[in-house]
Design a protein around this nucleic acid. Structure first.
Lengths: 226, 226
DNA sequence: AATGATCCTTAACTTTTACTTAACACAGTC
DNA sequence: GACTGTGTTAAGTAAAAGTTAAGGATCATT
């Protein structure tokens, strides 16, 4: 069981279904809470501030669409992901749900695999900074797992700082990274290094891969040219 | 037809389906391009940099899942939304698709309403990011993230003060900015510079973009002409 | 623990670029 | 026609980044 820190709230009036979903989500390492109708759902949501809510549409007291609309009005939940559960073929609910601000819906009966992949797909969007795996742009492929940079059919094993600097710049091609930002993300907030340190590492990257890929924006910082 | 600036790419090997989807999206005001197989899809994507891609899974040359995986490796497309088209009940593709980094999928046969509400739901999530960092007026686009000024299909990398001055004036087209105000906002309160300094920077901007965009209000300051 | 290799940071120096100034020209106003 | 505010230009100055080599830190190897 991998560890991840996402909080998920499951709201449905049928206890069996809640249990079934909660069980599957917990097995994946999510932190799961639950509620059994719309009103309770809102209360729990306000308390635990989940990253994602699995929300049944047909419920007593307050249906899923209303819950969704209510939550979306609150800035706290503007970026909370919401997945609806709908009865098979209920196209109307589906449209209403998405219009109410939901991010996805799943048709009952629920298949665990489908549920989990969709949850994962949505949550991935929540942590965009994560640069795991491979990162390709132009002639470059950055392999963060192996700490390797593939460039034009060759591959290089860069020193750590050089690698992290390049990886940072490449993570958003074209974006100008302020020197402060670079220091924070590559060197961390605690360490204080001199002004020329960044330059020296930039220079090494330019020596390796040519001057055309990293450009200077004077007074601001550096950027990777797409 | 409302105006929105989102670019959508449709990739499917069946011309009828492409046409059908393109027609529906265009009616909503989206800027739509299309491709007829995976390889072409990637090429077009790299050219137009769409905000969202509607991607068929079953295609010759390169199937949708592969296209998706390829694109996701490139930081440029890290936040590009991807919707898969799958045949009815093909649960395996669905899971593979979402694992490959898709944001949603739609089961064929496609119903326009479903397609459009889902497209809208996904794009809504994108908007706040898109807006920040870009400022468009007339022929100008100020990109503060890349520190670039796009002007009539060309782009310029201005020195800092010039950039900030232009950005200030353009932030409220038509408004007259007092010289004092300009000094405060661009130069800061601490620094004291001579009278002619502003003029010189205004002049540089006029040299670059022509005299028609920035006009002098004698005794007061300058303004950007909309 | 000693060795050697690699990597990181620094400091001094050079180069480049951007910014400011000063001197003067011009235009409109009283 | 003196005054005020802005336009223009080129030259001087300041600031940021580039470059280099050297010293120290770190790490793997023996």
């Amino acid at each position: 069981m991998e560890k991840n820190n996402f909080k998920i709230l499951v709201v449905d009036d049928e206890p069996d279904i809640v249990e079934f979903i909660v069980y599957n989500l917990k097995r994946e390492g999510y932190e799961v809470s639950s509620a059994h109708d719309g009103l309770e759902g809102i209360k729990v949501a306000e308390k635990v501030k989940p990253d994602l809510i699995v929300l049944d549409i047909m419920m007593p007291r307050l249906d899923g669409v209303e819950v969704c609309e209510h939550l979306r009005r609150n800035p706290t939940f503007k970026n909370t992901l919401i997945i609806f559960l709908t009865a098979l073929g209920d196209e109307q609910s589906e449209i209403k749900g998405l219009n109410a601000g939901a991010d996805d819906y799943i048709v009952k009966p629920i298949k665990p695999k489908i549920l989990l992949t969709r949850v994962k797909a949505l949550l991935r969007r929540l942590s965009p900074d994560e640069v795991s795996g491979k990162n390709q742009i132009g002639d470059f492929i950055i392999d963060t797992e192996q700490y390797l940079v593939h460039y034009k059919k060759d591959h290089y094993s860069l020193p750590r700082k050089e690698f992290e600097l390049l990886n940072l710049l490449i993570s958003k091609p074209g974006k100008v990274f302020h020197r402060d930002e670079i220091l924070n993300k590559v060197w961390g907030t605690e360490v204080i290094v001199g002004d020329r340190t960044i330059d020296v590492h930039i220079r090494k990257l330019r020596q390796r891969f040519g001057d055309d890929h990293i450009s200077t924006v004077k007074g601001i910082g550096y950027k990777f040219e797409a």
